[in-house]
Design a protein around this nucleic acid. Structure first.
Lengths: 213, 213, 213, 213
DNA sequence: AATGAATGAGTTTTCATTCAT
DNA sequence: AATGAATGAAAACTCATTCAT
């Protein structure tokens, strides 16, 4: 499994050190509250060095997104590999989604909160990597529909955003929650997927979707 | 039905004019891009006048939230009044949610995008009005569970956030989408609610929940 | 003896209430820190009312100076009346000066500190009342010189400023001092006057100036 | 002798250029009237550069005080070095005091007027350097008392402030005076010191203090 | 490649003062 | 005379970014 968050060490390439420092600083101080010099200090480079690797502060944020999504996609595909059943694939998707949050809390803060502070990310940027991530959901739905396991009248495009929205809102609340116990991510994952799969299941055919016989 | 967005006129109370002007300016330029003087000009008041009614720029944003949520809650309760069936109540909730978005696009932009730019709103503020709004969902679920119509093993607290997340993500995408046709909100509303209700329905009893016979 | 500081009461004329309120507010918050609305609230008048009686905030400060100096001059002349001996007159002057400070600490703060924050008072204003006050010193010196009690080679104009400076600096330090005990004003008054009179005494004649025989 | 005021040149270190420019701008426009951009323009640096060397505008003022007092103390000690007689030491003190005023009129304006506009300088700051400066007076008095030349019943602490007050008031009036001829500083210095020394002289002993035989 | 000193644009907020009532 | 809501001018300061070394 890919590392998603690397260990900071002066041995590493400066670019990596800057990315890792940024994640921590953005998580701690917020995107706007983070100063370039904070990042530079944590990465043990000069302020100007950051501009050798990134166009500007927002570019650092977007590069975090790009590079960490790359790793996340690799993790996700590795996890889903070999799982056929749509219900199980969706379960694995949700479990992976939440596990990444839990394992990388600083990155989770950046993805769930700070990234959305970026005017550019929100309005101009085309987050292809996020779309690839969500495409996984759309394809699970499509394949379920093709095998007849899932209702054909649902628009996989809309369902994709709905499922992502459900997982994402729970993620945000988990990140923001003071007492995280309230948001039991494991339970949330299984309940959300059960509800969605239950709701998408094709009742007119006999196959038992989403339930072990 | 309450107005949600008032008509700007020089007759109105200055505070109302400032609120209405802010919604438009925030929607157009974003929270950070909006200058107090932009709002003042549009509201036809002096810059300083804004500070007679609001503590600072962020306070304007939070007051928009408080006051418009008040109106939205009134609209919502009026709409749900008299509807008993959990499925129908949820349908009405989602339809109202999306209708408000469509009818008040500037306010939608502020709620879906700009409000979340506020550090205070996200981290410190306790958005009681939003919680009241979501509590409506939680209660529909709880009541459905009490009548046996909905599965008892679901946590209404988690389900509430999941349903909200699904509606909210579709709202955001609708707001951000250049080609809004892609997001047919009516279709989205009914599909999301069907899936959720289908998934939450109690299969072990005979009542036909969420489906007309 | 004149009151120097009046008692605030709603019975009084508004102008007097504003003057008295200003002294307290200026003493507490400083001239620049004092807001017109603070003064208005304490004087129990509307903000705008202040501008019926004073041109602007600085005018309030200068009017405090003018009017309180008027009262102080009256007190001073009453005290010196009947005292002939230059040494005794100077002693009475210093004692009165310090007694006024002690009896009117808010006014003392305004005179010793806040008044000197006023650009206009310092650079443009001609504080005739202060000059009248100091003229008392100059005349004591002149008369002492005429009777031969004091050295004729001293410039009464310079001596006046020197004596005032000495008293004034002790006053400022007394006002600013946290531990006021350090500055025993009575002792300061008598020592300063003794030194000055001793220093100004005409040693070449036989009259014992500044000492009781 | 130290320079007290340096010559501005683009060769100098930026910090020095800012200090020198500030003295001139503060003297000309007053502390509050001086804009950071005025100082920056005169120092030929960018506005922001000032904040690399100073915390804020008030810090610039306080640093002027600290650094120029350092130089003044050096000048003073050099001047007093080798002078034993209390009368002569005090004469040298006063002469140096007034000479510095005359030689550095902009700095004189800052010290006599602008510095006292600073709320912090007046109320919170502990001007150790000024106290060191005044301590020189206190020690002259103490030593004079120890040798029996000066009256033992005077409190050197009070006398120090009185002498400083006298010199300071004459300084202020000289700085503020339109027609400075009125304030002949040389004459003022000698008269003030003569009066003080005369007044402090111990008449009960036979030594001729402060007078050449 | 790396540095870090220097730059300078850009905006909220306060509050003395005004004036319609 | 009195009010107090409304006005609007004015400037310190931050920090992302640059570029000479």
């Amino acid at each position: 499994m890919a590392s998603v968050e690397s260990q900071s060490s002066s041995k590493q390439h400066k670019r990596t050190r800057i990315i890792d420092a940024s994640i921590e600083v953005f998580a701690e101080k917020g995107f706007r509250g983070a100063r370039i010099s904070d990042i530079a200090r944590k990465a043990e480079v000069a302020d100007g060095t950051i501009y050798l690797y990134f166009r500007n502060k927002e570019d650092v944020l977007l590069c975090i997104f790009e590079e960490k999504m790359e790793e996340i996609l690799a993790v996700l595909h590795a996890r889903l590999d070999g799982i056929e059943d749509p219900f199980e694939r969706l379960q694995a998707f949700a479990a992976t989604h939440f596990q990444l949050l839990r394992d990388h809390p600083a990155l989770a803060q950046v993805f769930q909160v700070e990234l959305r502070q970026s005017h550019r990310f929100l309005r101009e940027y085309r987050p292809e990597k996020l779309w690839q991530y969500l495409q996984v959901i759309e394809e699970i739905v499509r394949e379920g529909q093709e095998t007849g396991a899932l209702r054909a009248d649902l628009d996989p495009f809309l369902v994709k955003w709905a499922i992502f929205g459900a997982l994402d809102e729970l993620s945000i609340q988990w990140v923001l929650a003071r007492k995280r116990e309230r948001f039991n991510l494991d339970r949330a994952a299984s309940q959300v997927v059960e509800v969605f799969v239950g709701g998408m299941a094709n009742r007119s055919n006999t196959s038992k979707v989403g339930r072990k016989p």
